[in-house]
Amino acid sequence: MNSPLDFINDPVVLRIAKLLLWILAIVIFIGFLRRVLKKRIDNVSVRYKAQKGVEIIGYVLITLLILMAFTVENIKDYTIIIGLFTAGITFTLQELILSIAGSFYIFFVKVYKPGDRIEINGIKGDVIDIDSIYTTLMEIGEWVSSDNYSGRIVKISNAFVFKGPIKNYSMDFPFVWDELNILITYDSDVALAKKLVLEKATDFLSEYTKSSLAKWEEMVEHYYIENAKIAPTLAISPTDNWIAINLRYITDYKLRRITKHELFEQIVQALMATDDKVKLASTTLQLLKIPELDIHLKQ
């Protein structure tokens, strides 16, 4: 009859026990290092990267320990069991494994980083954290207009980096093109309106234009992409009711809403000061009076 001591002294049991103790020691050491880094490093960005680096090193060490624990001489006796066990674990935890692989992909390929504004799996927001399983976003949009925060924190599996497109608003070119339509009447001085709109836009957006030009030149050197016009441009489109002056300009991806608001205010003030040479258009309705009918009936 086998005694409990025989089970404890079994080489396989001892090997597994040692493996678990080493894994526990590594996890405790990682937690200790993270606390030390949090206290010693004041810069938020550097502290975040250091803590993530420690986590990744810990995962690598644990993986190596597991591989070393099973690469022993007696492994031949357990190859079938280990193979079936690994296949079952892989199938059951395929989403988890894909998420962990996604975290390595995000870290090394630099798909996005904390602080970037991205859209992934139909959800748009600012990245506020990336761990081994999830990417955490501060959501923008949904029931609020433009690029305002909704107030919801969204966690998205890192596995989605392999499943669909990722739209990054700030990775290499932290600017976006936006448009503003100015509507004027047909009896307005179109040439004067174009001149004022372009002057105000060029003056107001000069800093954005200068900053984005340097970034765009880096983009052209790094990617296979044609050069683009960074300065504000105009396009005229007549309609049945008014003339639409379409202003296209570049702005910071996080300041799109406020830029459009302030730019529109300045343009409207300039157009209103033209003594009715330029008139802003709006939808109008003309009501026609039905003529009176004079009916005579013959006897």
Rank of each mutant, 00 (worst) to 15 (best):
V13L: 13
I106V: 13
L37Q: 05
L205Q: 05
R35C: 12
Q286V: 15
G125W: 01
E139D: 09
K298E: 07
F264H: 12
I75A: 14
E55M: 01
R152H: 05
G102W: 00
T202R: 09
V197A: 00
E262H: 07
V27C: 02
L98R: 03
T202D: 13
L196M: 12
L192F: 08
T90H: 06
S146R: 15
D77W: 10
V109L: 06
N168M: 03
N148E: 12
N181D: 15
V109T: 11
D77I: 02
M219H: 01
P232Q: 09
D126G: 05
V60H: 04
V72R: 12
K52R: 12
E217R: 06
D126C: 05
K260G: 11
I89R: 00
S3P: 03
G53C: 07
I26L: 03
A231F: 03
L21M: 10
N74H: 11
I166K: 00
D147I: 07
V60W: 04
H261R: 15
V44A: 12
A69D: 04
V12H: 11
T90D: 06
L64H: 05
L205C: 14
N148P: 04
L19Q: 13
S145I: 15
D203M: 05
K18Q: 07
L280S: 06
A87H: 02
E73P: 13
V154M: 03
K200I: 14
F108Q: 09
I57E: 07
W177N: 12
T71E: 07
T136V: 11
T86W: 08
